[in-house]
Amino acid sequence: MKSRVSLSPASPPPVSSPRVSLPRIALHAFLIVTCLVTLAPLVWALYASLRTYDDTARNGYFSVAESLTLDNYSNAWTQADLPHYYLNTLLVTLPALVLVLLFSSMVAFGVSRFSFKFNLVLLMLFTAGNLLPQQVIVTPLWRLYLLTPLPEWLSDSGVLLDSQVGLVLIHVGFQSGFCVFVLSNYMKTIPHELSEAARVDGAGVFRQYWQVILPLCRPALAALATLEFTWIYNDFLWALVLIQTGDKMPITSALQNLKGTFFVDNNLVAAGSLLVALPTLVVFFVLQRQFIGGLTLGSTKG
């Protein structure tokens, strides 16, 4: 069982040993060039972020830097009050992530492991919901949020609008479509006999889900967690519409604060942007092993 869902093939196929051959060199050359081209924009932004405003204002961006400095980073850090907004984002992203994975794995479990009347309809509903454009939802959602009261201890605005709870909820609702789709595909590849055995042992539905199926989905969950983290983290529109207090904005929207209305220091914005991108980069590189493994989506092997 384990080998089926793990990422690396137990023994790599004995392809021709990597000797130095002409095609090999050409392949590496091609890949190196492609990588460099891919990285160029980021490197360019990084370069700009290390230069002073005076330097680039006088010499232009396409020039050798007079000096390199980390000042833009410390300025962006304090000027945009980044720690505060990192925390805002964290407090939205983590609960949303946990809930969306929990909810969608429950639904996926239901639709993929049991057969009932609305089985397929439910799956279709989630999958199609995931394809809806955000803009189709946003206006009535705003009204709904304005009209839904929340106790003061849950939201100081007294309603779902302008509360982080509301932001978490819409992320959960909106993202669960994609996750249900992926997870149900994945769960279908898990042999039915497993939960059957558990059932015979007297395990209830919830135990089958929690102790048998869920642990086996770990690679898919890891892959989804990575993807969903970047998606929720990078969200721009929900917060723009549903949050009204500047202090509650998540970091992606707060980045705007660095862009002056009348005066724009691109170097500073570049530094801020890279700082904002940092968490997604870290998460990605930490989880990349699980990611590729999990993304097989269980759909190719049938």
């Binding site: 909810f103 639904v107 479990f109 439910l122 509903l125 919901g129 009535p140 909820l169 609702g173 909106f174």
Partner: peptide, 16 residues
């Protein structure tokens, strides 16, 4: 297990 997530999804996505 099916109902709660579906309700959230329906109310926040399909109803709007």
């Amino acid at each position: 297990m099916l109902g709660i997530p579906s309700l959230v999804h329906l109310v926040l996505v399909w109803v709007p």
